[in-house]
Design a protein around this nucleic acid. Structure first.
Lengths: 209, 209
DNA sequence: TTATTATGTAAGTATCCACTAACACCAATC
DNA sequence: GATTGGTGTTAGTGGATACTTACATAATAA
């Protein structure tokens, strides 16, 4: 007899909006009032969908992680079919990643998570996300190395280490953007040039500059 | 006739205590009450030394930056006198840096600054600190390259880029520690192995593992 | 129609926290 | 020893904000 419960649909509709708000404002400044306004609702209504602000935050973290891995999946499967070789394709991906400039806001949200690291739930969520992401990247690197014959150049790090290094570069790259630490061109080079060196992609070719 | 003003001395005495508190608690949880207690004072008295909590935070940022560069200065001048060569010495420093595990708490404080990045003063302070640090590291790398004949191996990044990469590794290394992302050994390798590859230190030698 | 639950609106509460006001005491110089 | 400002102690205050309560209305299925 009652009217149907559309909570789940509304949540999936609203999560991107929350994500945008958290990314734009940061955890602290994203007050529940601000979040509600961004959603075109009252605070009250938000609390009928999620039990707390923290739950809203964790929902956005999940959502953005999905978005991010989907992006990589798409680009990587395109790269796998690339006739010019895995190395060149991977390098191209790194360049694109450098160009993206963190438009999803995932990193801004991770920073927010960082400063809330005393909260065990948030800390666990951030940790899990990094681990899943690392596994993902390390696998890609392993496959890429195998495709190229299995021998990494001397200076290249093993996939595990290289994956963490790439994640480090990407994370810092976003810090740099946040604070305008260096120009966009430098940021791109950081991913494309340093990144591919780490991954052992430019073993037998010298980067142009 | 009044008794002498010891504000400056007290400030320099208290800044390390504040730094410890900010690093342990983070910006948000480091309430003025907590800061005062850590100092063995009343909130009131803190406010007689600094005009605001933000000012206290900026003071600790300055202090920790000084501490950090002093550490590097000492180790680098020792390395300059090292008979076994600049490259080996630099690599040893990277190993030590990996071992330090951010005991000063500088990075935790930077995370705090990150999430307060909407505050222009704090943002400016963090930016300035990164820039000064980058200049410092890039210079070291340039000198080191020159000492080794001026020719960097193909895979090594130019000093500017390499310096940012090293800073990225160090920053992320501290994120990793905060969240226990990977074991200590990995953390050390990240600095020692990947770091020296980036700096072009292991051009003609293969790292042992 | 009617019972029942989702949805909308308005106001409120409880708590935390940066920052302040008021007052007593003490130490140093004249 | 008197004056002056540093120091200690207690108690606030004002504002922000996560979360709640109460109630009206709308939509669904019996």
């Amino acid at each position: 007899m009652p009217r149907p419960n559309r909570s789940e649909e509304r949540k999936t509709e609203l999560t991107p909006v929350l994500a945008r708000a958290f990314a734009d404002l940061g955890y602290r400044s994203a007050t529940t009032a601000a979040l509600a306004e961004a959603c075109g609702l009252r605070e009250n209504q938000l609390y009928r969908l999620w039990p707390s602000k923290k739950a809203m935050f964790l929902a956005t973290l999940d959502y953005l992680y999905e978005l991010e891995t989907r992006w990589w999946d798409e680009h990587l499967s395109a790269a796998a079919a690339d006739p010019s070789g895995a190395a060149a394709a991977a390098q191209r991906i790194l360049e694109e990643e450098g160009k993206r400039r963190g438009e999803t806001g995932l990193h801004r949200i991770i920073f927010a998570g960082l400063s809330e690291s005393d909260d065990p739930e948030i800390s666990a969520a951030v940790t899990a996300m990094y681990h899943r992401f690392h596994k993902f990247i390390a696998n890609v690197l392993r496959r890429s190395a195998k495709a190229r014959g299995g021998d990494l150049p001397d200076h290249a790090a093993p996939p595990n280490l290289a994956a963490w290094s790439l994640i480090a570069l990407a994370t810092f790259s976003n810090i740099a953007r946040e604070f305008d630490l260096f120009p966009l061109a430098t940021q791109r080079k950081l991913m494309a040039q340093v990144g591919s060196s780490l991954a052992g992609l430019n073993a037998h070719e010298t980067p142009s500059d």
